[in-house]
């Protein structure tokens, strides 16, 4: 597998950009898809956001200064695109982004691309009740096992604050699952 540094150099060269972009897609598309999917919930929405994310990466790779890892930079774009997508959808439907998320969770039972059991559905409901940042932190740590250091880079928050937020989120979710 090509190193991140080489991949960045190739992505910035017009001659090798396309080939390097194919490599980037193969390395990161699934990880970014699952990250986006957990935020926007439905597959169709996740597909839209994933496409927008990669188009943005392709167009803005020359602006990437290498101050963070390529992976962190792409995760940050994917996170911002997902949140922007939810806000835009909420504005269009004249609702809050929380209401949109609740609506997406309520639709999960009928979603053909949700194979979760009752407890997984409850977990999604519990996550949707958390503040947006806690949702992100919980999903990234619990399901994606992203380190606090990487998460601090992606979300531009201190590691200490992330740890505290994660433990609070786990506690709230466990409490919700126990009482429901």
């Amino acid at each position: 597998m090509i190193s991140e540094q080489d991949l960045i150099v190739q992505l910035k060269s017009e001659r090798t950009k396309e080939q390097a972009f194919k490599e980037l897609l193969s390395q990161y598309k699934e990880r970014l898809y699952w990250h986006i999917r957990k935020i926007v919930i439905s597959h169709d929405d996740a597909d839209d956001v994933l496409q927008n994310t990669f188009i943005k990466v392709y167009k803005n790779i020359h602006n990437f200064k290498g101050e963070s890892q390529l992976f962190s930079w792409m995760y940050r774009i994917a996170t911002n695109e997902s949140i922007t997508f939810l806000n835009r959808k909420a504005k269009f439907l004249k609702a809050s982004s929380e209401e949109i998320q609740q609506q997406a969770i309520n639709n999960l039972k009928a979603d053909v691309y949700f194979e979760g059991d009752e407890i997984q559905l409850k977990l999604q409901k519990a996550i949707a009740l958390l503040p947006q940042k806690q949702q992100l932190i919980f999903n990234m740590k619990y399901f994606d096992d992203i380190t606090y250091r990487e998460m601090a880079d992606i979300l531009e928050t201190s590691e200490g604050a992330l740890k505290a937020s994660y433990h609070i989120a786990v506690k709230k979710i466990e409490k919700y699952l126990s009482s429901n």
Binding site: R37, V112, Y113, G116, D117, L121, L123, N139, F143, I173
Partner: peptide, 11 residues
């Protein structure tokens, strides 16, 4: 929590 759920259930 992890004893109950390990994946979100999306396909």
């Amino acid at each position: 929590l992890s004893s109950k759920i390990t994946t979100p259930g999306f396909e």
